[in-house]
Design a protein around this nucleic acid. Structure first.
Length: 470
DNA sequence: CCTGGAGTTGTCCTA
DNA sequence: TTAGGACAACTCCAG
């Protein structure tokens, strides 16, 4: 019997279907061995708590699909692979590309150091266009979304078509650590709570896609702005971990463009385009996770205020739409996109707290925490990023609440103490005449607003004026 | 090199 | 009540 093996290294492509590396190996080899390695040696930032939880359950689900033959290790991949190559007849190692700067660097070294022992291949699986392929005519990267997407992406070659095939996984006897040895999970109440809202794994990703494409997308262009409506896909965590490919989403939504309306399909695609844009930015500006893209913001007078930051994290700012969002995040490991903008704008522009702090908190709490998207989105909110959105665009947390949660249903869902609060004052409880509600006292049952909207807005505008170029 | 049009998601004031 | 312009000026991008 043939004892030659080929290793597929699972990373952020935790799926069997439409996996180019697995497809490639399957055509050449009869014996494929699947490996996952938790690398906390080379990384420049450890996974957040929610990400670890998602990964833990994803690996359990993947392992089950593989008849418990997934090999799991913790440590430096180079050491792990050297061991495997020295002890088994490994002909080939193959993986799907990641784009975090530290991973690019690590993989490059790994290839260099192992290429004399074993054949190595890598594939694109998680981006519709490679970041080095979408460039302006002069060869430099785009900094503005619209030309990036319309001209850079839509005018170049169409994304690869998704392809799924039978994979020849090998019924091996190789020993490894267990998924529990990775210590990705704890018995924290918080973890148990947030996973209750999700079904984690590849099969649930396709189910979610199918459900969304048959119902939610029908009113995507309008409805996606309202946090209580079922018009967003909530596929972001699955996309991040590669439990579904953007290629599948791209072509599936193209197929139903007539039924769901061209506009809804186009806007959904452009959201995938934003994801591409964020990766493109990260690839060409690898420091955006920490550093302002517009360096003039380096001298912006951010404020250090731990009690404000704590109030924001806990959903105790006294602004119901902000608090509802922050509590949704803590309760479910997710926050609706519109509310991410509102809470982000509030942190940065009303509290004047550095976007780095918001980015860190989201990194820890979000199931879809993504190195590229999280950083680039925070820079967008803060106005420190590439897009030249006017600095005076400051969300008003009262107006935004009234506009996008007009029935108050979202606020009431996540802020139980306001469940019986009159709708008229729900977006600005401090305006409610005292004693309107029995057993409710502002400052006791729900906090007073920690800042004044008007004066904090003006303060932010003054601060922005100070860093103007001239 | 020059030119002109444009830039995800807002708010506030005024007529 | 509502629609339209001001907010300020910059950088990006393509021709």
């Amino acid at each position: 019997m043939n004892d030659e093996i080929a290793i597929h290294w699972f990373r952020q492509d935790l799926r069997i279907s439409d996996n180019p590396s697995l497809n490639f190996l399957s055509e050449k080899y009869d014996n494929i061995v699947a490996v996952y390695i938790l690398d906390e040696v080379n990384c420049d930032r450890k996974m957040g708590s929610a990400s670890k939880t998602w990964l833990h359950h994803s690996l359990l689900s993947l392992n089950e699909k593989l008849n418990n033959k997934l090999l799991v290790f913790k440590g430096n991949p180079e050491v792990v692979f050297n061991n495997l190559v020295d002890n088994y007849n490994v002909k080939q190692i193959s993986w799907c590309r990641c784009y975090e700067p530290w991973i690019i660097k690590r993989d490059l070294n790994l290839k260099k150091n192992l290429k004399n022992k074993v054949q190595i291949n890598s594939f694109n699986s998680s981006l519709l266009w490679e970041p080095w392929e979408v460039l302006k005519n002069d060869g430099s990267p785009y900094k503005i979304f619209t030309p990036f997407y319309k001209r850079g992406c839509l005018n170049s070659k169409p994304p690869r078509k998704p392809k799924s095939q039978e994979i020849n996984f090998f019924n091996h006897n190789i020993k490894s650590q267990s998924i529990f040895d990775l210590e990705l999970t704890s018995s924290k109440f918080w973890e148990k709570k947030i996973i209750k809202y999700w079904n984690i794994g590849e099969s649930f990703a396709s189910k979610l896609m199918n459900d969304f494409f048959s119902i939610g997308i029908q009113d995507y262009s309008e409805g996606r702005n309202f946090p209580i409506r079922k018009n967003v896909s909530r596929l972001s965590p699955y996309l991040h971990w590669g439990q579904i490919s953007p290629h599948t989403l791209w072509y599936e939504v193209s197929n139903i463009e007539q039924e769901v309306g061209e506009k809804n399909a186009e806007i959904f695609k452009s959201e995938l385009g934003w994801r591409e844009f964020f990766y493109n930015l990260l690839y060409h500006f690898p420091k955006i996770q920490k550093f302002n893209l517009q360096t003039k913001f380096d001298k912006f007078p951010w404020e250090n205020n731990n009690s404000f930051f704590d109030a924001w994290k806990k959903g105790q700012t006294g602004f119901p739409i902000v608090d509802a969002g922050m509590r949704e995040l803590w309760e479910t490991g997710y926050m609706h996109n519109r509310v991410r903008m509102i809470t982000g704008s509030f942190l940065v522009k009303n509290l004047l707290i550095h976007w780095n702090q918001g980015e860190e908190w989201f990194w820890d709490c979000l199931f879809d925490a993504d190195y590229a998207s999280n950083s680039a989105s925070w820079q967008w909110v803060a106005g420190t990023g590439t897009d030249s959105a006017p600095y005076f665009r400051i969300f008003n947390p009262v107006t935004q609440g009234k506009k996008f949660d007009p029935t108050g249903e979202y606020i009431r869902k996540f802020i139980p103490e306001l469940r019986n609060f009159p709708l008229k004052y729900l977006f600005e409880p401090w305006e409610c005449p005292p004693n309107t509600l029995k057993n409710f006292k502002l400052g006791i049952n729900y906090p007073f607003p920690i800042v004044d909207v008007k004066t904090s807005r003006e303060k932010a505008l003054d601060a922005f004026a100070k860093i103007k170029v001239n």
